[in-house]
């Protein structure tokens, strides 16, 4: 059951942030690529939100296609939601680690 959930979660994360799928088998290289993956997620989210803001401003001035504006804003919301979920998980993991005895 868990095996079927994690690919689904990975799909959601991939779709929301637009990152290429990270192969779960490459455990050796996960350590270094995870940090860079996080940085990428942050950058991607910021870019998506900026695009949504620009398109919204254009839409208000009557210069953008309505559907494009709606799509951009929805993608921004999805990306933001995913980024927040990641942030919450990281904070929880950090707290757990800090509670571990030496």
């Amino acid at each position: 059951m868990i095996g079927s959930i994690s690919p689904l979660g990975q799909q959601v994360l991939t779709k929301a942030t637009g990152l290429p799928e990270i192969a779960p088998a490459a455990t050796g290289a996960v350590g270094t690529s995870f940090a860079s993956a996080l940085a990428d997620v942050a950058a991607q989210t910021a870019a998506t939100m900026r695009k949504a803001e620009q398109l919204s401003a254009a839409g208000i001035q009557g210069q953008a296609n309505t559907r494009e504006v709606v799509d951009a804003v929805m993608s921004a919301e999805q990306a933001l939601q995913a980024a927040i979920a990641i942030r919450d998980k990281i904070v929880t993991a950090y707290l757990e680690v800090s509670r571990m005895g030496i």
């Binding site: 504006v69 804003v73 933001l80 927040i84």
Partner: peptide, 22 residues
């Protein structure tokens, strides 16, 4: 139509700000 788009955009961005501030 313009008013509906306007309020929808404001609502969406307001939601996002509230979400990220939680």
């Amino acid at each position: 139509r313009s008013f509906e788009l306007n309020t929808a955009i404001v609502k969406a961005f307001h939601r996002m700000i509230m979400l990220s501030s939680k």
